[in-house]
Design a protein around this nucleic acid. Structure first.
Lengths: 333, 333
DNA sequence: TTGAAAGCGCTAACAG
DNA sequence: CTGTTAGCGCTTTCAA
């Protein structure tokens, strides 16, 4: 049997309430008493049982984190930001991979709710009606990180993907590129698909080159799909002299796809990526990319969640972090 | 107030014990009764409280995972293997980053024990005496993943790092390379430092080139340190014509460090990495590397932990998974 | 096949 | 400043 608060009380010659008070740092304890209790705790090697505490207090100091895939370099960085801030506020994290599978996501939320988490941080792709229903029914706060909610009625932390993509493509066109191609994520994905694509499209339309759907290759976030996308695009009659990729990993694929068939980056074709993961510096030429502050998105969303959990006032429910460009050697400007 | 097992019992006209039985799939319930209960659960939207269950049953179906840094591509892959198997066995994961800091590691173990996890999966660097003490005192099983325990008295899952490094360097020497250099991790690190280094050293000594400490650069796992290491090594009078790096990330740094000063890989200098992370294919030339099955190490260690938690018999407490070489374009053989 | 009742270890009024 | 007393929601004997 493990030693309990009751054992400590007996050992120290006080009531369990007093032990509870010193364990929880309640100031209403005479120093001498506190010392007796502390000594007893030390002597018995007492370790409070967080489960019992959770049952009695209805707080577990644990938050659920639903993430598409922790082995993705992008989400792993986000997770690190989340965990750091959680630790700072004394929360632990229950981490689950969803593979962006709707049934799994809903199931995971329910599992976490059973475990009585104090809040949930959700990262995913599309927020369907069913997601919205589930979120609404949740007895604890839920915050979205790097995940768009069409109705903007959920608390969330993002950057403006549409604008960021628009900016990146505009840079290219302003620098004199006549035809810019794109390797996008699946268009059903609101972030890496639709938003970034629409930013690209808008820049094409407004800046003169016009939109040509042949210049768009749809990838699946992988390096390999970037590689294939590049080869498809440069195989065109009127092939692009710059390619914008929706993620850094695909951008690396694009660069190597280009190089593998003898094209030079950036001389023949310029390349811009998105995210500024560590990959961007691990390639030659180094990658010009849109900086998405992944760690910060994780950190800020966790901070936001703590505010909800503490019932603090929050002024901005929907926060958009700034993005910017990191110019490296895969572009000529 | 949330609905409890008691509400369901009243609604279904049975006792809470019966509700508990159907919730837990106990077969000793008449089908008709079961149906009544299930209907009541459905109607009330009842969701069992895992915290209360944990307190009563002394099982939380949660395991603690201590990892140096989830944003590392290597550990993220490992974590994915862990989580997948945990999910398969209906466990959830509490994930914490330790940054390989001893105090943090010990502290985290205690936090997890307070939370009454059913087991702990530990990834770290050095296992000190203090670690061993803490592990020994744990009331729940602990398994090490990709982490060496000098005394081999803890259950663990690894590959044979020494042998793997020896094999890689031997390949180079057998292929005619006269001088092989190495970029190692910190030598205090038993895995990425000492074991791999000693494998390298042994191959040098046994295969003829002899060991020359000038040929060794100590990195810190980062891409950047690989880059610097390479430049240091090729600056030598009698510079190496092949470099073995203790991790893929450092190997990418080595390749680019070489290329940045005009050397060709593999014509001028061959390069071999370690781990076979996804990075190995995201570089030109693609990287020849030692395959360490990260996902599998995670999966197998979690499986091993489930056996301990279920008090099943385990035949192999210390498991060594096989390693092999993946030959790509950064070597000439 | 079902119910009654005793905890699991702790928090949180409430009293004194 | 300290102790008493109810629970928190569930599992688990033990009887019936």
């Amino acid at each position: 049997m493990n030693t309990t608060i009751y054992d400590v009380a007996r050992e120290a010659g006080v009531s369990m309430a007093t032990v509870s008070r010193v364990v929880n740092g309640n100031p209403n304890v005479k120093p001498a008493t506190r010392k007796k209790v502390l000594d007893a705790i030390e002597g018995l090697g007492y370790r409070p049982n967080a489960v019992a505490r959770g049952l009695a207090s209805k707080k577990t100091t644990t938050v659920g984190v639903i993430i598409p895939d922790i082995s993705s370099i992008f989400f792993a960085e986000l997770a690190r930001g989340i965990e750091d801030i959680a630790t700072m506020y004394k929360y632990n994290i229950i981490l689950c991979n969803s593979d962006q599978n709707k049934e799994k996501e809903i199931h995971l939320i329910n599992t976490m709710l059973e475990k009585q988490v104090d809040g949930i941080l959700f990262m995913g792709g599309e927020i369907t009606e069913e997601h919205a229903e589930t979120f609404k029914r949740s007895p604890v706060p839920i915050v979205l990180a790097a995940t768009l909610d069409a109705d903007k009625e959920m608390p969330s932390v993002n950057i403006n993907y549409h604008q960021a993509a628009f900016d990146a493509v505009s840079d290219l066109i302003n620098a004199g590129v006549k035809r810019v191609g794109m390797v996008t994520g699946p268009l059903e994905d609101p972030v890496n698909g639709y938003q970034k694509f629409s930013g690209y499209k808008k820049a094409c339309e407004e800046k003169g080159q016009g939109f040509d759907e042949n210049l768009v290759a749809v990838g699946d976030y992988t390096y390999h799909s970037g590689l294939e996308g590049a080869q498809k695009l440069v195989g065109l009659d009127d092939s692009p002299t710059a390619i914008f990729a929706a993620t850094d990993e695909m951008a690396l694929g694009v660069i190597h796809g280009l190089q593998d068939i003898g094209l030079k980056v950036p001389e023949d074709v310029q390349v811009i990526g998105f995210d500024n993961t560590r990959l961007a510096q691990m390639v030659r030429p180094t990658l010009t990319t849109v900086v998405q502050p992944m760690y910060d998105i994780g950190a800020v969303s966790m901070r936001l969640l703590t505010k909800y959990m503490n019932k603090e006032d929050v002024e901005d429910e929907v926060v958009a972090l700034p993005h910017l460009m990191e110019y490296r050697d895969s572009t000529t400007f």
